[in-house]
Write a protein that binds this DNA or RNA. Sequence first.
DNA 1: CATATGACGACAA
DNA 2: ATTGTCGCCATAT
Length: 121
Amino acid sequence: MKAATEKRNERIWATICDIPKGSVANYGQVAEIAGIPRGARQVGYALRHLPKGHKVPWYRVITSSGKIAFNSDTAAFEEQSKRLAREGVAILNGRVDMKKYRWQPDLDELLWKPSAAWDDD
DNA sequence: CATATGACGACAA
DNA sequence: ATTGTCGCCATAT
């Protein structure tokens, strides 16, 4: 794996780790904050390549339409809904109420960890 | 280099 | 609300 790729993935994972418990963020949002505009698919890629011992709250990442990214007939789908529900995020027909749970990082939070936002190395 | 693929996203019918 | 198309971008073949 290329070094640049690993670094990109780490930034994505770090961003996801910033999503507060009880909130969710969509793929594009995570990508932007991680410094990868229009990199929604890269977020998906990074999530698929999570290292085995990770503690990344992957389940807090959903699609822009508020739906869980997995097909409703998969085990992953079930686990994600379960984990979200356990944090108080209501799931209705495989969907979460974005208006209510969408993560809205404020300036303080972004300044609090600049590395994710403008670390071009 | 040409295609195909995917835990995506925006938009038109 | 659903479905189809097209754009996007890193990887895999």
